[in-house]
Amino acid sequence: MRRLLLAMLAVLAAAFGAFVVGMRRKSPVLQDRVRRFSKNYMTPAVLPTAGRAGQSNGVVHHRGRRSGREYSTPVTPVAITGGFLIALPYTARVDWARNILAAGRARVDFDGRGHEVTDPVVVPFAEVAHLLPRGSRIAAKVFALEEFLLLRTVDGES
């Protein structure tokens, strides 16, 4: 029984290691699979409570740049003075980020409040690392997150 448990732990550790390496190297195959899994399974599970008071994740509401359709995407924003930072683990080429960049504005629901945001800019990790909490900095380094979306709140608060 102990050998089986150790073998299972070894397989899990190897799988996690492969996942981290794949994300760090921005493997298109891995990122596409993770993105699809997230869209099909995680988004429906997280979206109902995202943005509510006490939740660590939020929701960014944006309009499709071609369709004009309204979308809601769960994200993990980091509140900073005058706005938010959102990690872009799949780079700024994801549809929701491209929609916000094209529109120049969106709404972020976070910690029970809605925030109109504007002036979206993709910034490198090195430029905003000092603004991130320790846990976010560590995660950014482990997964080699190179890009963040900087959003300014319209009212200057966050």
Rank of each mutant, 00 (worst) to 15 (best):
R98C: 06
D119K: 07
A126D: 12
G54R: 10
V29I: 14
V142P: 11
L88R: 05
R93N: 10
V108R: 03
R36F: 05
R98L: 13
G68C: 07
A87N: 01
P74C: 07
A103H: 09
F110T: 08
G135C: 10
R25Y: 04
A106M: 13
A18M: 11
L88N: 04
V11E: 01
F84G: 03
A87Y: 02
V59L: 14
D111M: 03
R33F: 11
L12K: 05
V123E: 09
R69C: 07
T91R: 03
H61N: 11
V29H: 04
V122Q: 06
R24H: 12
G51V: 07
V117D: 09
S56P: 10
V34F: 12
V78C: 02
A106T: 11
V121E: 14
F125C: 05
A106D: 13
D95A: 07
A92E: 03
G83H: 04
D111Y: 01
A106H: 11
V46Y: 14
S72M: 06
T153W: 00
V94C: 00
H130Y: 10
Y71I: 03
T43N: 04
V117S: 10
R69S: 14
R66V: 14
G68M: 02
F37L: 13
P124Q: 10
H61G: 13
P124W: 11
R98E: 15
N99K: 10
S72L: 09
K141S: 04
V34N: 04
A53E: 13
L85Q: 11
A97Y: 00
V34L: 15
A129P: 13
R65A: 11
I138Y: 05
G54H: 10
V142I: 14
L88P: 01
V94P: 01
G114K: 00
V117C: 07
G54E: 08
S72I: 00
R35V: 00
S27I: 11
W96R: 09
P77L: 08
N57I: 07
A50L: 04
D155P: 12
S72Q: 13
V59P: 03
R152C: 09
L30D: 03
I80K: 04
S38M: 15
S27A: 12
T49V: 15
E127I: 05
E146L: 09
E147Y: 00
H115V: 04
A92C: 01
A129L: 06
E70K: 12
L131C: 10
T118L: 05
V29Q: 05
W96C: 12
S67G: 06
E127F: 08
V128K: 08
H115K: 10
P133A: 02
H130D: 14
P133K: 05
L88G: 07
V29K: 03
V60S: 09
P120F: 00
T43K: 12
D32V: 01
P120W: 02
A13M: 02
E147G: 06
G64V: 08
P44Y: 15
V34T: 05
V20I: 07
R24Q: 15
A87F: 06
W96I: 07
D119R: 12
R105K: 13
R69Y: 08
R25F: 12
